[in-house]
Amino acid sequence: MTRPEHIAPPELYYNEVEAKKYTQNTRVIHIQRKITKRAIELLALPKNKPLLLLDIGCGSGLSGQELRKMRHVEWIGLDISASMLAIAKERDVGGDLCRSDLGEGIPFRPNTIDGAISISTVQWLFNADFKDAQPFQRLKLFFQTLNHCLRRGGRAVIQFYPENGHQLEEMQRCATQAGFGGGLLCDYPNSTRQKKWYFVLFAGTAKIDPIAMPQALMAGEDQNDSDTDSSDDSDEEEEEEESGDGMILDSNSDDEDESDAEGPIEKKKTSVIQSNVQFEWKREKRSQRDRRKKQKNLKQKVMEQKERQQRQGKDVRRNTKYTGRKRKSGW
């Protein structure tokens, strides 16, 4: 599968044609809506409280439409693509829009935003799209400014498509350095197509108990939910019915616990990324270490050197019992 972020920088890739395609594709809309619902669930917003949310990488406002359904909630969308924003404006998605490059930092004053969601956006930050771009610096600045602008206890849910373990690791590091608590969550970890990575970050509470992390969804739990079934209209309808009565507002971590206890549904708690990804990382490190030769003692080293020089046809002293011995210490 080709990744759009390998083709062109986002502000150029999402031109008018691509933006239009993106917005009219029902499959994209379906997936976006589902991810957004899950992200809102993970945000665990307080019920019926007026909130100001941030949609980072809002694009044409597909995810914003979900945010709009909640009462007392206003949202502000950030995106870099002018064409996407123009479409969002046309569709009247209900949020205020702002064009911004995430790598330059989020342009909001500290302590102003209640929560942030970001749907498949942050992987774009790993590219050096222009001269002098430093992806890791940009990533770090993004997390720093995000942490600043969130209010204490506010959450950020960031869904993205990492290319490899290193990207996950790097993002985790940047987020922790910026002062975020929380960690990584992987929905449907056993499925290739449905697998989704979410960062659930807590601002202002860095030392939060890892138990407070929400639980991941596992495959086989709900067959209707798979991406591959998105073409089936009936499935879509079923889903809508299920989520019709204010599921967004009702679902918080407590509810999840209840359903866990009731149903035969098997939910596995994914712990913080450290345990998950560091494992791979450890294995890699070990293989690297094995490749490195062991430190030899002096005698072996000298003998090897002499052999090598002999092979090269150099004048080498013959080996005696004194070869490669340490000199006696002085007086």
Binding site: A82, C98, R99, F130
Partner: peptide, 14 residues
């Protein structure tokens, strides 16, 4: 422009 503020600082191609 079109009620969307442009907060990008760096120069964008084109």
């Amino acid at each position: 422009h079109n009620s969307i503020p442009n907060m990008i600082v760096r120069a964008i191609e084109g």
